[in-house]
Amino acid sequence: MNRVIINADDFGIHGEVNKAVYIGHTYGILTSTSLLAPGPAFTEAVDMARQCPGLGTGIHLCLVGGLSPVLSPREVPTLVNEDGLFPDNYMDFIRAVYTGKVNFSEVYAELAAQIEKILATGLPVTHVDSHQHLHVLPPVWPVVTALMKKYGIHRLRLPREPYRFKIFTVPPGRMLGRDALTFLASRAARDAAKLHFSGTDYFWGMADGGRMTETKLCYLLETVPFGIHEIMMHPGCKAKELGKVFKWGYRWESELKALLSERVRAIAEKKNIAFINYGDLL
C-alpha cells in the first residue's frame, strides 16, 4: 500500500488560503499543512487548525516572501530590508548569504522564535519544512537541524523530486530550479538519516508548483512508485483576490478543485492509496 501525504503550504499567509486549507481537509483529501508563523492570517489559521484534529500541522519556516519577521526587525537587521521585511524570494536571500551579508545568529534567533510561536499555540507539530525550501540550503541546514533537535521535532520535508520527472514538459528555468533543489535535498537527506530524522521516500510538486490540477494529481496517483510520498499543494479560494497580493501566477482554485475531486478519490481507492500526514511517520 502506498502512503501519501497531501500537504498545503503557506497556511496563515492569507484568509483565502486558510479557507481553502479548511475546505480541502474537511471535504477533500488534504491531510497536512504547513503553518507560517509570520503569516498575516496566522491567528485565523490556528483557530481553523484547532477545528481539524485530523489535519497534520507542520512549521513552515520563513526567511523570504516579503513578510515581517516574528522578532523585531531591530533584532534581525541582516535578514530584512529597509522596510523591515524579509527579501521577496530565495534568490535575493541566497545572494545576501553568499556575499556575507547575513548574520546566522540572527537566522537562529528568528527561526527559533517562529518555532516557539507555533509551539505556544498547543497544536501538535508534525514536521518542519520552509517557505521556498530554504531549510535545505547548506548554510541554513545546520541551523534548522540544531533547532529540530532542541525542540524535539524529528520529521521534515525532503523536497527531492526525481530528476527525470516531466523532464520534457516543464519549462527549462523551472527544471533547473527543481534539479538544484533536488540535489541539495538529497545531500540533506543523507545527513537527516544520520540524525535519525524521518521524511518521505518521494516528494512531488516542484514541476507543477502552484499549478497542480485534477488531471496532474490523477496522473501522479496513477504512476507513483511504491513508498511514502509527499505531494505539495497550494490551494486557495478567490484567485483574483489572492492575485492582487501575490504575483506568483498560482492556479489556487484549480488546486483546491483537485483536492475535492471525486475522480482523484476513485483513483486513490483503485490504487489502494492511504492518505496520511507526517505525524503517522515513525
Rank of each mutant, 00 (worst) to 15 (best):
E222T: 12
L260G: 11
A112C: 08
V144T: 09
E253Y: 11
G28M: 05
L176K: 08
L85V: 11
S68L: 04
A189T: 11
C237R: 12
M148Q: 09
P172C: 03
G39S: 05
K271M: 10
P138H: 05
E255A: 11
K257H: 05
K117A: 14
G56V: 15
D201K: 01
F42D: 02
H14G: 03
S198W: 09
D208R: 13
D10A: 09
F275T: 09
W204C: 03
G279D: 06
V64H: 07
S32R: 01
A268K: 02
H196C: 10
L111F: 06
A41W: 10
L119W: 01
S261E: 00
G122D: 08
S34Y: 11
L119P: 01
V46E: 08
F203C: 10
A192Q: 09
A8G: 08
K19M: 11
S105G: 06
V136A: 06
Y108A: 11
H229L: 03
Q114A: 09
L119R: 12
F183S: 06
F86E: 00
T213N: 07
F168Y: 08
T31Q: 08
E222L: 14
S72H: 08
P124K: 13
V102H: 07
A96C: 10
M233P: 01
S198A: 15
K194D: 09
L176H: 01
G249F: 08
L67R: 14
A8Y: 04
A239H: 09
G199D: 00
T213P: 06
Y202W: 14
L256V: 13
Y151Q: 10
R174H: 02
I59Y: 05
R157V: 14
C237V: 14
V102N: 05
P69E: 05
R157N: 07
G56N: 12
P139F: 06
F86K: 11
V107W: 05
P38K: 12
G279M: 13
V17F: 03
A193T: 11
L85M: 13
P162N: 03
V70W: 04
V128I: 15
V136Y: 06
L158E: 00
G227V: 03
V170P: 02
G84P: 10
